[in-house]
Measured scan of single mutants.
Amino acid sequence: MQIFVKTLTGKTITLEVEPSDTIENVKAKIQDKEGIPPDQQRLIFNGKQLEDGRTLSDYNIQKDSTLHLVLR
């Protein structure tokens, strides 16, 4: 499925993911596309910070959902 990740600069990254993917996996995909190390990434969905060990389906993230990427 496709999800979107919006950065603070207003750029939107499109990712191909599975609901069973962990947040860690998603961060690795963002690193592949953008070169941002996962330990600098914080992903936010519906105002909640997403934890590495959880999956997209844990957070009820579905296709065409938009996550927000904050760098630390």
Rank of each mutant, 00 (worst) to 15 (best):
M1Y: 09
M1A: 12
M1L: 04
M1T: 15
M1K: 04
M1F: 12
M1V: 11
Q2I: 02
Q2A: 05
Q2T: 15
Q2V: 13
Q2P: 07
I3V: 04
I3G: 00
I3E: 00
I3K: 00
I3A: 01
I3H: 00
I3M: 04
F4W: 09
F4K: 04
F4I: 09
F4T: 08
F4E: 09
F4D: 14
F4P: 03
F4M: 01
F4A: 10
V5G: 01
V5W: 01
V5R: 00
V5L: 06
V5H: 00
V5Q: 00
V5M: 08
V5A: 03
K6I: 13
K6Y: 12
K6A: 13
K6H: 14
K6G: 02
K6S: 12
K6N: 11
T7Q: 15
T7M: 10
T7R: 03
T7N: 02
T7H: 01
T7A: 11
L8P: 08
L8Y: 08
L8M: 03
T9I: 03
T9D: 15
T9W: 02
T9K: 06
T9P: 11
G10F: 01
G10Y: 09
G10E: 13
G10D: 13
G10R: 02
K11I: 04
K11Q: 05
K11Y: 14
K11T: 11
T12K: 11
T12D: 13
T12Q: 10
T12P: 14
I13M: 11
I13L: 07
I13T: 11
I13H: 06
I13E: 04
I13G: 03
I13W: 10
I13N: 05
T14K: 04
T14W: 07
T14N: 05
T14Q: 08
T14Y: 13
L15N: 00
L15G: 00
L15V: 01
L15S: 01
L15Y: 02
E16A: 11
E16F: 05
E16T: 08
E16Y: 05
E16V: 12
E16L: 07
E16K: 11
E16I: 10
E16S: 10
V17N: 03
V17P: 06
V17Y: 06
V17G: 08
E18N: 04
E18I: 05
E18T: 06
P19V: 08
P19I: 09
P19T: 12
P19S: 14
P19A: 06
P19Q: 07
S20D: 12
S20G: 12
S20T: 12
S20Y: 09
S20V: 02
S20Q: 12
D21W: 12
D21K: 12
D21T: 06
D21E: 11
D21M: 07
D21R: 08
D21G: 10
D21A: 10
D21Q: 11
T22D: 14
T22A: 07
T22Y: 05
I23H: 03
I23M: 02
I23T: 04
I23Q: 05
I23D: 01
I23K: 01
I23E: 03
E24I: 08
E24A: 04
E24H: 02
E24P: 15
E24Y: 01
E24F: 08
N25S: 09
N25Y: 09
N25L: 03
N25H: 14
N25R: 08
N25K: 11
V26W: 01
V26K: 00
V26R: 00
V26Q: 00
V26G: 00
K27F: 10
K27R: 07
K27Y: 14
K27S: 13
K27M: 10
K27H: 04
K27N: 14
K27Q: 15
A28R: 15
A28H: 07
A28M: 05
A28Y: 11
K29S: 11
K29H: 13
K29M: 05
K29T: 05
K29D: 04
K29F: 06
I30P: 00
I30S: 04
I30K: 00
I30H: 00
I30N: 01
I30Q: 00
I30E: 00
I30A: 10
I30W: 01
Q31T: 05
Q31S: 02
Q31R: 06
Q31E: 01
Q31F: 11
Q31K: 06
Q31D: 11
Q31N: 10
Q31L: 10
D32L: 04
D32R: 13
D32G: 11
D32T: 07
D32M: 04
D32P: 12
D32H: 11
K33R: 01
K33I: 11
K33S: 15
K33A: 14
E34A: 03
E34I: 04
E34L: 05
E34K: 01
E34T: 10
E34D: 01
G35W: 05
G35T: 14
G35D: 06
G35I: 09
G35M: 11
G35F: 09
G35V: 13
I36V: 05
I36T: 14
I36Y: 08
I36W: 14
I36M: 13
I36E: 03
P37G: 09
P37W: 14
P37R: 03
P37V: 11
P37S: 09
P37N: 08
P37Q: 10
P37F: 05
P37K: 06
P38G: 13
P38N: 15
P38W: 12
P38H: 14
P38D: 12
P38Y: 12
D39L: 09
D39M: 07
D39N: 03
D39W: 04
Q40L: 12
Q40S: 11
Q40W: 10
Q40T: 08
Q40Y: 02
Q40I: 08
Q40N: 12
Q40M: 12
Q40K: 05
Q40R: 03
Q40E: 06
Q40F: 02
Q41N: 15
Q41L: 14
Q41T: 10
R42N: 12
R42D: 14
R42M: 12
R42L: 11
L43D: 00
L43H: 02
L43I: 06
L43Q: 00
L43F: 04
L43W: 04
L43R: 00
I44K: 04
I44P: 00
I44V: 12
I44L: 10
I44A: 10
F45Q: 13
F45L: 12
F45R: 01
F45D: 08
F45A: 03
F45K: 02
F45H: 14
F45N: 10
F45G: 07
N46D: 15
N46G: 09
N46T: 05
N46I: 07
N46K: 04
N46S: 10
N46Y: 02
G47Q: 12
G47V: 05
G47L: 06
G47R: 15
G47P: 01
G47N: 14
G47T: 05
G47M: 06
G47I: 10
K48Y: 14
K48Q: 06
K48A: 15
K48I: 04
K48G: 10
Q49A: 14
Q49F: 03
Q49P: 06
Q49R: 04
Q49G: 10
Q49M: 04
Q49S: 10
Q49L: 03
L50F: 08
L50S: 01
L50A: 06
L50I: 10
L50M: 09
L50H: 00
L50G: 01
L50Q: 01
L50W: 01
L50P: 02
L50R: 00
E51F: 02
E51D: 09
E51S: 09
E51W: 03
D52M: 05
D52S: 11
D52A: 04
D52W: 03
D52T: 11
D52Y: 14
D52K: 02
D52P: 04
D52F: 09
G53K: 03
G53D: 13
G53M: 14
G53A: 13
G53N: 03
G53Y: 14
G53R: 06
R54I: 13
R54V: 15
R54F: 11
R54E: 13
T55I: 12
T55N: 05
L56N: 01
L56P: 03
L56F: 15
L56E: 00
L56R: 00
S57G: 12
S57F: 08
S57A: 09
S57H: 15
S57D: 14
S57N: 07
S57W: 15
D58G: 02
D58T: 14
D58W: 02
D58E: 11
D58M: 08
D58Q: 09
D58V: 04
D58R: 02
Y59Q: 15
Y59S: 13
Y59I: 03
Y59E: 15
N60G: 11
N60R: 02
N60V: 08
N60H: 10
N60Q: 11
I61N: 00
I61T: 05
I61K: 00
I61G: 01
I61S: 01
I61Q: 00
Q62T: 11
Q62D: 09
Q62R: 08
K63S: 07
K63N: 04
K63Q: 12
K63Y: 09
K63V: 09
D64Q: 02
D64I: 02
D64T: 07
D64H: 07
S65T: 15
S65Y: 07
S65D: 14
S65Q: 15
S65V: 05
T66S: 02
T66I: 14
T66A: 13
T66P: 06
T66K: 05
L67M: 01
L67G: 02
L67D: 01
L67P: 01
L67Y: 01
L67S: 02
L67H: 01
L67F: 02
H68G: 04
H68N: 14
H68F: 03
H68P: 02
L69F: 06
L69A: 07
L69R: 00
L69P: 00
L69K: 00
L69Y: 04
V70I: 02
V70Y: 14
V70F: 07
V70S: 13
V70R: 03
L71K: 07
L71R: 06
L71P: 04
R72Y: 15
R72E: 08
R72S: 15
R72N: 15
